[in-house]
Design a binder for these strands. Structure first.
Lengths: 146, 146
DNA sequence: CTTCATGCAAAACATTTGCAGCTGG
DNA sequence: CCAGCTGCAAATGTTTTGCATGAAG
């Protein structure tokens, strides 16, 4: 896991570079994303920010994560059947393990897909920009619960 | 590519096994999915079915693809930012190359991910049920168009 | 004939957008 | 100060659902 303090500084740096304002609401979102291991959804972030800033709106959370995504400071994992999840601690593409029971998302320690990516590019002629790899299954905790 | 005729027969077989009715609308959808190489969206299927059965509703297409998915006869590729795409010709999980410009989806000839899957399972303790691997980039045709 | 499928319209749901008023720098 | 942000509510777009009518077997 990356150092949350460092990640927070990097995020703030990117915002300042592009002359975006650091509002209390934004700072709260950044902090949550910088340290999160649990790949929060917009709703989870919203609930947490609300504890400190009860008037915050969902739209602001959406706007903030969208902005951070455009700055390359957060990785969005979109799901059609539910709300999207975000990784601000490690914003580069990497594989995810998703528990279909409790919806937990963890990062497996796997080697990169660079070989597979170049093979795919070479065989299809595509110019590959990014990728996404998700494994779906039952996490150890949920296996016990049956 | 699998033989569309064979795929169609397999699909019909599965429907009959479970005593689902073969309606003209369903048959039209099955045919499109069995032979499609282009991973059609519900809307694309809808437009095509409408040519033969102009009164068909979108809801019926949704119901049919959902049914086929439950029978394991179609693979759904869900996308949060747009409409989902379906592969009825090869319903098992496999990698996809997605053009971010023209939205075309093709199957690259890549070896399976079984090694990576077992490594991920072993390292995390997950019981892996399925997976999804997408590469996003620009297809050869769209590269020319700049 | 009886059960299941169709087609329509309304509902559901996450996300986006328009805009008036507020505020960071 | 004032450009850019917030918060509200309304809009969006895809997919789902309820229900009366129609057709498969």
């Amino acid at each position: 896991m990356n150092d949350p303090e460092v990640r927070l500084k990097e995020m703030l740096q990117k915002l300042r570079e592009r002359r975006f304002r650091i509002t209390p609401q934004r700072l709260a979102v950044l902090k949550i994303l910088a340290r999160s291991e649990n790949h929060p959804s917009v709703d989870m972030i919203y609930e947490e920010v609300r504890r400190d800033f009860p008037t915050t709106s969902l739209a602001t959370i959406y706007k903030t994560v969208t902005l951070l995504k455009e700055l390359g400071q957060v990785l969005e994992l979109g799901f059609p059947e539910g709300s999207n999840r975000f990784d601000g601690n490690e914003p580069s593409p990497h594989p995810h393990m998703i528990c279909i029971s409790c919806k937990k998302i963890v990062d497996p320690p796997l080697d990169s897909l660079s070989d597979l990516t170049s093979e795919a590019a070479q065989k299809t002629g595509f110019n590959i920009v990014t990728h996404r790899l998700d494994f779906f299954g039952i996490c150890p905790e949920c296996q016990g619960k049956n």
